[in-house]
Structure formats: structure tokens, C-alpha cells
Amino acid sequence: MPDKPQRLEFPVIENFSPEVLIEVYGILKKTIKVVATVDTGSTGFLQIPLATGIKANLRLIGTRYYTMADGRKVKKIECMGQIRFAGQELFGIISLSETSDDCLLGMQFLEALGMDFTVSPKNNKAIFQSLSIEEPPTEEPPTEKKE
């Protein structure tokens, strides 16, 4: 496992979706590579299509209702699994969609990753950066004018 990088940049594809390549695996460590969109409007960890979850041998744990952007409540199957990304292995609850082919990384993923995430449409970049504690700027004492 490589060291955690300080900064990672990905191009933002044409429809303004920041997409990254991740590896998903379950208890049998059978790894599946998927391209996932970082979706800060999603409160979850990762959503993948049902078939992808089955291929990765994720461990079924139950169900959960999710509220969609249009207000609908949709039941999804949930599994335990891990994501390998940016030199880290992150545990989380992965939801399986029976109706969508999208792979979505949500806010729980970003929290677990512990890196800042920035999208720069101007530069066509999505940027993950290690959190750094910046010292607040100190106010310079006013200098006295000497005549």
C-alpha cells in the first residue's frame, strides 16, 4: 500500500462530474475497480449498482431508505465493504442500487478519507488535498511613523 499522497488531481469530465477510480472489495478481498462520481449531495459512503456489489462479494447487512433529490424515498440494499483510494483502505456501508448504474461517493466517504475536496471548473480539475492546519494570520502591529 503506497503512502497517503498529499494532493491528488483528477480532470472533471465534460458534464462537470468529478470522477475517480476506486477499488471496492468485501470480506473475500475480491477487488472490483469502478469509476465513481464524488457527490457532495449524497450523505452516504458509496453507492454502486447491485450487480457490481454481487461481483465484489460484499457482505449483505440489510436495508435502508434513502431520500432522493426529488423527494422520493427509495429502499436500497446495504452491504459492508471497503474502498481503496489514495493510499487508504476505508471501511463503510455500501448501498446497492437496483435501478441505477451510477457509482456515487458521498460525504461519509469524504469524511473517512480525511482530505479536503475542491472542484475547480475553471481549471477542469477535482482536487483532493491532505488537511493542513493553517495558522490564522497575525495582525501586524501598526508601525510608528518616524519623522
Binding site: 450523505t43 449483505l60 447487512i61 440489510g62 436495508t63 435502508r64 423527494g71 424515498k73 446495504e78
Partner: peptide, 17 residues
Amino acid sequence: LFHSIGLLKNNSLQYAR
């Protein structure tokens, strides 16, 4: 099998809509 509510604060927000 379990039914997950997730993070309680997220769920409370969803039900509040």
C-alpha cells in the same frame, strides 16, 4: 438482516422535508 437509519441527524433532516 438489519434496517439502517444511518446517521440520526441526516435522517431527521430527511423526515423534516
